[in-house]
Every structure is written in C-alpha cells, then in structure tokens.
C-alpha cells in the first residue's frame, strides 16, 4: 500500500480541465433559477441521484464522474445519501410506473430551493421504452424538470457540462 501512496505524491494529477458549459443549457436554466437562491446556497450543490427505471447505463456514467479524470467534487458538486440533504435531484430512466410514487416522494422530501436534472434520453421522453404499459415516459410528466442532459447514456463530459451550467446559472 505504501508504494501506491508514494506514487501518488510524485505523479501529476490525472484530473482534466473542465469542459465549457453549453450556452443552450444556461438558457434553459436561466428561466428557472433566481438570484435569491443563488445567494443562499453559494457555489456548491448536493445531488441525490434517483434511478426511476434506467437500464443502469446512465448510472455507470454518473459513477464515472467521481473518478480521478473528472473529479466532480472540485466543482462543489457532491452526491448525498438522502433527499433531505439535497439541492438537486438527478433522475434517470423512463419513470416506470412501479417507481413513480417513490420518485414523487423523493421530490417531496427534498427541501426548497431544489432543481431537477433529467439524465439520458429515457428521462427526456421515455426513450426506447416510450409507450410501454409499465412506463410513464418523461420525468417532466411526474415532477418539474429544470435541465435535460440527453444521450444514451450521456458521457461524463456531457454530464459535467450540464452540471457546470447549473452551477454557473445559479
């Protein structure tokens, strides 16, 4: 173990420069965020992830945000275990009917001010699962959504770009 720790002292960090946020994303957010909440929270956000029926592809890429290359926490963004500690709900999946109530209750348990980021094509409009008897479809049909990050799944750079837009727009 000592070897690994020493190596860590000598090597430069793997973490890469932050991607620029997309302007359309900031435009989408500008309408939903107000300055008062920005002052209250500063430049840090706690995120609660909710899988509302995804195939787990989005979860893999969300996990990757924490690795040394992307290092999400340097932007003041971190994942928390409870919606009661969260500012942002990050929702994936075509909202299965079996998960609808759990999603609504998670949203209700998140204190104001709060934002919802819908991740992936399924969360946008149901994706390939749209039209199923078992799926509601878009996350926005269940709870209000402030930002969509499309992709199947969106890669970590796309995720970072969207989340940085969220921090900057606030």
């Amino acid at each position: 173990m000592r070897k690994f720790l020493f190596q860590g002292l000598h090597r430069p960090p793997l973490t890469e420069a932050a991607p620029l946020s997309d302007d359309p994303m900031i435009a989408e957010l500008a309408g939903t965020l107000n300055r008062a909440s920005r002052r209250k929270l500063g430049h840090s956000l706690s995120i609660r992830e909710v899988d509302a029926g995804s195939c787990n592809g989005c979860e893999l890429e969300i996990h990757a945000l924490g690795n040394a290359f992307y290092d999400l926490e340097r932007f003041g963004l971190r994942f928390v275990a409870s919606p009661r500690h969260a500012d942002v709900l990050m929702v994936t999946g075509p909202v299965t009917k079996n998960m609808r109530e759990a999603l609504e209750r998670t949203y209700a348990a998140t204190p104001h001010p709060k934002w919802v980021v819908a991740i992936g094509d399924c969360a946008f409009d149901g994706g390939v699962f749209a039209g199923s008897y078992a799926c509601v479809g878009a996350v926005s049909e269940v709870i209000p959504v402030d930002l969509h990050i499309r992709g199947c799944p969106p890669d970590p750079v796309a995720l970072l770009r969207g989340l940085i837009a969220l921090v900057e727009a606030r």
Partner: peptide
Amino acid sequence: VHKGIQQLMVDAPLDRATRLASRVSG
C-alpha cells in the same frame, strides 16, 4: 424497474428489437 421490454418486443422490427435488447441491462 420493470419496463415491459418483452411486450415492447412483440411485433417490433429487428433493428428496434436489437436496440431494446441492448438496453435490458446497460
């Protein structure tokens, strides 16, 4: 996370069915 994938496959053309199968477990 039941999505009804097997029913979505019913009467699906092969390319759509392949996309569905590819998303059973990411």
